[in-house]
Write a protein that binds this DNA or RNA. Structure first.
Length: 305
DNA sequence: CGATTTTGACCCGCGC
DNA sequence: GCGCGGGTCAAAATCG
């Protein structure tokens, strides 16, 4: 066991590990979320991590099983290193392209905000369905300038303008999702001509952790989570209030889990769950899709300025 | 009392 | 040209 703990520690300290730094573990012992995530799919990493926890804490400790999972984790780590290198290369290329673009733009006296103004993105944010305010705290300051009830949706749509910096062209439309009223859809148009206010971001985290009715944007979900697909995995990487409460030393969390009274039941439930997942032939496909989506979401392709 | 939100009126593009 | 619907304006209302 000490070897395993040393190995985990080594993996955690490795350069490209963005793993589950502060894991939140639910009542059945599953890692639900954490603040830092792996470059590879957080869900695939989380799955292997859960399997690993299960095996390690199983009353009938299976050395072979643990070694197998260890191999899987090492495999993910290698994949992660590769992705890290790819990311570095892409960043370098993006930086070169960015510089080249600016050189051209300054030569031709182009206004860089022209193409940026047409940029749009869409995010889905989980909220309290009772909260009618349609406020999405994302670190920017918004002023509401209108509200409409669109024809196809009986729920009102609010219009906001960013007023953090004078002349910032960004607007957003916020509307409660028809498929699930616990979500709001925020459509952003344009690109900010300023940085995010770190103090506002801090307030966001605070209000979120204090259970304020105002919603916070955990991360951009570029795809519609309600899109009808045969296999749908939602990668919840959010830092909810309860997550913040669980921002503790992972070893301590692991210790809490390992000293939990309901060990056997938890492990059986996890094993049942994992067994049903791994037997599902669609699971691999869904996992692959989730990996691709996760990578896209966590490292969106930089758009030209 | 200033800042912010609400809400009805208005503008504008699009399809017919 | 007309009607429709989404987006914006701006005066009034509300809030802190």
């Amino acid at each position: 066991m000490s070897y395993i703990l040393r190995w985990i520690s080594r993996v955690r300290e490795s350069r490209f590990y963005y793993g589950i730094k502060y894991p939140k573990i639910d009542s059945s012992g599953f890692v639900i979320s954490g603040s830092h995530f792996h470059l590879t799919s957080s869900s695939s990493y989380r799955l292997v991590f859960n399997l690993y926890y299960t095996a390690m804490n199983s009353p009938n400790y299976d050395n072979q099983k643990v070694e197998g999972l260890q191999a899987q984790l090492e495999c993910l780590q290698r994949e992660n290193e590769g992705l890290g290198l790819m990311l570095e290369t892409m960043s370098r290329k993006y930086s070169m392209l960015h510089q080249a673009y600016h050189r051209q733009a300054s030569n031709k006296r182009l206004r860089p905000e022209v193409p940026a103004a047409s940029k749009t993105s869409q995010v889905f944010v989980k909220t309290d369905p009772r909260d009618q305010s349609l406020k999405v705290k994302d670190g920017f300051q918004w002023r509401k300038y209108g509200q409409k009830v669109p024809k196809e949706n009986p729920l009102p749509r609010a219009y906001f303008k960013c007023f953090m910096a004078p002349g910032c062209p960004v607007k957003k439309k916020v509307q409660r999702c028809v498929e699930d009223k616990s979500y709001v859809v925020a459509i952003y148009e344009g690109q900010h001509n300023h940085d995010v206010d770190p103090t506002a971001a801090g307030r966001q985290s605070l209000s979120s952790s204090c259970g304020s009715p105002a919603t916070s944007i955990p991360f951009p979900l570029l795809d519609n989570p309600f899109r009808p697909t045969s296999t749908c995995i939602t990668l919840d990487l959010s830092l909810s209030g309860s997550d913040l409460q669980n921002r503790r030393n992972p070893t301590a969390v692991m210790h809490d889990y390992s000293t939990s009274n309901d060990h056997g039941n938890n492990n059986r439930r996890i094993e049942d769950c994992v067994a049903s997942l791994t037997k599902d032939p669609n699971f691999t496909l869904a996992l692959a899709a989730a990996v691709a989506r996760s990578i896209k979401t966590e490292h969106p392709k930089p758009s030209p300025p």
